[in-house]
């Protein structure tokens, strides 16, 4: 499938270099904002909240916070990565190069996922300075991290192809992803909600991601891990189908 591995490496390096150039925006700002969450929710409010299911509140919100930034960063990185060449016109080179669509996707999505995972890990390290963290299932933790990063980088790639302006690029993350994440149990257990709202929450895909990820830390979850995993794969499949459709139709890439 990957024939022109040098092209994949070139695009990947290009994208990583871009992140490095904008290290302030791409790394420091998400880490900073997370630290603020810890101060506000963990230290200030958390001291007044009792532990949830035996986990101290400051630690309880860590998986949700990491998930929040994993989603937003994956989408932002991948969507911007492919949208910008379209906007600037430099996409001509990509289209005229001996690369397949799969290679392009692998390179962009790979770079976006790498960046968001690095940010996730930095946040984890930052969190460990504020609260006692113990990771019960480190392998699963990494697996959820990887799966989520790849899935939402694919989602970002689709948005980057679909968008025909910078507003649209911001639209989906701002209006859909962030609200869903906040309502998806990042800062609370959905079991704390009244039955009706708990049922509504089950339609929120982010609930499954946060729940599964939290399980890998504390060994307890709002919904069963199997369901979480299945849902994650379902989103992955949906995003792959979207990307495949773009390839088949040449949607917005070629006149």
């Amino acid at each position: 499938m990957i024939v022109n591995h040098r092209a994949v490496a070139s695009i990947y390096r290009f994208e990583m270099a871009r992140a490095w150039r904008t290290v302030m925006q791409s790394v420091i700002s998400p880490v900073l904002s997370t630290s603020l969450y810890f101060v506000v929710f963990g230290a200030a409010i958390g001291s007044r909240i009792q532990s949830i299911e035996g986990v101290q509140y400051g630690a309880y919100i860590v998986p949700g916070l990491i998930m929040l930034s994993l989603l937003t960063q994956s989408i932002a990185n991948a969507s911007f990565g492919i949208y910008f060449p379209r906007f600037a016109g430099t996409i001509y080179e990509l289209l005229s190069a001996p690369v397949s669509f799969v290679e392009v996707v692998v390179a962009y999505v790979g770079a976006a996922a790498t960046k968001s995972i690095i940010i996730g890990l930095i946040m984890l390290a930052t969190a460990a300075m504020f609260v006692d963290l113990e990771i019960r299932h480190p392998v699963w933790m990494v697996a959820f991290l990887l799966l989520t990063a790849v899935t939402f980088s694919l989602f970002g790639f689709i948005i980057g192809i679909w968008a025909d302006g910078f507003e649209k690029l911001q639209l989906v993350p701002l209006l859909i992803v962030t609200p869903l994440t906040f309502l998806g149990g990042a800062f609370y257990s959905i079991d704390m909600l009244p039955p009706f709202w708990r049922a509504v929450s089950l339609f929120n895909p982010v609930v499954y991601l946060v729940s599964g990820f939290r399980w890998s830390f504390f060994g307890q979850s709002d919904v069963s891990v199997g369901v979480s995993l299945a849902m994650t794969f379902l989103f992955l499949a949906l995003c792959l189908a979207g990307v495949w459709w773009i390839f088949k139709t040449g949607y917005r890439l070629k006149a």
Partner: peptide
């Protein structure tokens, strides 16, 4: 094939060296 497009479409923030090396890699050359 090598193509010099009509419009001046370049990456803005890259260095000259980086962008030219990038093109070489993109076309599969060592």
């Amino acid at each position: 094939i090598g193509l010099v497009p009509q419009e001046l479409t370049t990456d803005s923030f890259e260095s000259v060296w980086a962008t030219v090396s990038f093109s070489r890699g993109l076309f599969g050359r060592r």
